[in-house]
Design a binder for these strands. Structure first.
Lengths: 248, 248
DNA sequence: CGTTACGTTGAAGCCAGTCAACCTGGGTGG
DNA sequence: CCACCCAGGTTGACTGGCTTCAACGTAACG
C-alpha cells in the first residue's frame, strides 16, 4: 500500500535550468487554468520545462528521504500532505486537488510527506526553473505568490478550526471548504465529493473516525446534509453550514 | 486596551512605487540582519522605501477593516496574529518577533488581525515596492521566499500540535519553539523569555489558561523546566523537552 | 492597604476518545 | 451462486483528558 517509487514519464527530476524562452502571450487567464498553462511552458529548443509524474493510489510523492527544492502542480487526482508522529499518530496537513501547488522549500528537509490519495498526475518544476520563471515572467511570479499566500490563509483557517472548534463545527468547516474548492474548480456544487476515507477526514480535523461519523450523523439529523452513498454528500444550505462552521 | 490608530512616523501607508535604486552590495548577510538591512533600502533620491510604524502594547496593526497588500517587518517588540470567532473564542495563529515578516495578501481582505503584544516597532513595505524589489534584486526575492516557506513550515508544525498532541506536549512544543527562535535571533537560550500571558499561550495552543498552568507545573514536577519568575523559564535539557513535544 | 489582574490549584462536568458490537459492500474461492 | 472474509462505516456504552467553575495566592499599583 505505502509508496514505491513514482512512475516518471521523463527522467530528469532536478535538471539544470534550460534556456527558457517563454510563450508569454495570453496571460490574463483564470486561476486554475493558469496552472494548466504553466505546463505548456517550453524551453528555447521546444523541450517542456516541467517533469511529468504519475503516482498510483498510496504512492509517496515527496518525503524527508527526498529533499528537493521546487514546485509540484497537481493536474489530476488528489494528494495528501501529512506528518507521522513517532507513536503512529497522524496529522494531515492539507489535501491538494487539481490546480493546486505544492511548494517544497530548500532550507532543510521538509517535515512532511506527500502521497497520492487516488491515482494522480502531477508536474514538477525544479527550483532553478521556478527562479528563472519568476525572474523573467512577472505574471508567473504574481501567480505563484498569490497561490502561496492563499496556502497561508488556508492553513490559518485550519489552525482556528483545530484550535477552537467543536467536532460538528470542524466537520461543517470541512464540507464547506470542499464545496468551495469544488466550485472554484468549476465543478457543480451539488454532490460534494469526498475522495477520502473517514480516517483521513479524522486525521485532517484532529478527531477520530468515530467522532467524524457521529458528526456526519448529527449534521444529517439536523437537516444540514444528506448522503446517497458515503462518497458524496448533498449540502442543503451552504450559507447555513458555513455559519455553523463558524460557531453561529 | 484594544487598539486605537497606530502612531506613524511617516505618513505614507501605501505610496506609489518610488524609483528605487538599491544598495545591492554586501548581500551575503545572515537571516535576521537581512531584515534589518531591508530597512536601509532607499530610493534614487535617498528617500527611505519603508514606512516606519510604532505600536503601543495592545494596539491594532492590521485588521479586516484595513485591507492592504505588502509586507511588515518586525524590528522590535512582539506581534500576535489572531482570529476571533463570533462568540468570543480566540485563536492565536502566530507570534512574531524581531526579524520576522508578515505578509498581507492582496486578494481579499485577510481573515486575521494583528496587534502588538508589547510596545513594538515595525516597517511597512507596500505591495508594489515588494514587487519592484523582487524583480530587481534576486537576493531579496530569495530571502522573501525563504521566509514565506519558513512561515508555511511553522504553521504546519502548529497544525500537528493542535491536531494530535496532548496538553503537556503542546506546552513542551511551545517552549522548544521559543527557545529555538531565541537562539536563532542570537539571544542566549538560558532564560527563555515569555513575553505573553498564560491566556495568550492558551489561545495559541488551543487550550485554556488553567490547562496551560497545570502543564507548566507538570513540566516542573517532571524536572524538565524551572522558573524563577513567571516571565522567564529555564529549560534543563532542550533535547529531552523537544522529544517530549514529539510524544516520545 | 485595598483593588485589580493574573496565576495556581482543586473539584466537578462534559466533550471527544476508547473499546466493542454490528452492519454493509466488495472481493474471493469453493 | 453462495458462503466467507475483510475493510470501512455506524452506533452504543464507558472512560479519560480537558474544560468549567470556584477558591485562593501573589504581585503591581494607586
Amino acid at each position: 500500500m505505502a509508496g514505491q517509487a513514482v512512475t516518471k514519464a521523463q527522467p530528469r527530476f532536478q535538471p539544470a535550468a534550460p534556456d527558457t524562452a517563454f510563450i508569454c502571450n495570453h496571460l490574463n487567464v483564470s486561476r486554475q487554468s493558469f496552472s494548466h498553462w504553466l505546463n505548456e511552458v517550453v524551453t528555447a529548443d521546444k523541450q517542456p520545462v516541467a517533469d511529468v509524474l504519475n503516482a498510483l493510489r498510496g504512492q509517496q510523492i515527496y518525503g524527508p528521504k527526498r529533499p528537493a527544492n521546487g514546485v509540484f502542480i497537481i493536474n489530476e487526482g488528489a494528494i495528501r500532505l501529512f506528518r507521522m508522529m513517532a507513536d503512529g499518530r497522524r496529522a494531515i496537513i492539507r489535501s491538494l486537488f487539481p490546480g493546486d501547488l505544492l511548494w517544497v522549500g530548500s532550507n532543510d528537509l521538509q517535515a512532511f510527506e506527500a502521497e497520492a490519495v487516488i491515482d494522480s498526475h502531477l508536474s514538477w518544476f525544479a527550483g532553478d526553473i521556478i527562479n528563472k520563471l519568476m525572474h523573467e515572467a512577472p505574471q508567473i511570479r504574481a501567480f505563484l505568490l498569490d497561490h502561496i499566500t492563499e496556502d497561508l490563509r488556508c492553513l490559518q483557517n485550519q489552525l482556528v478550526t483545530l484550535g477552537r472548534k467543536l467536532a460538528v463545527e470542524r466537520v461543517a468547516f470541512f464540507l464547506t471548504m470542499l464545496a468551495a474548492r469544488q466550485c472554484q474548480r468549476g465543478m457543480p456544487i451539488d454532490p460534494v465529493l469526498l475522495p477520502m476515507s473517514r480516517s483521513e477526514i479524522a486525521d485532517f480535523l484532529g478527531l477520530t473516525t468515530e467522532t467524524v461519523s457521529r458528526s456526519f450523523s448529527q449534521l444529517k439529523a439536523m437537516g444540514n446534509i444528506s448522503a446517497q452513498d458515503q462518497g458524496a454528500v448533498h449540502i442543503h444550505d451552504v450559507e447555513r453550514l458555513a455559519s455553523l462552521a463558524d460557531g453561529l
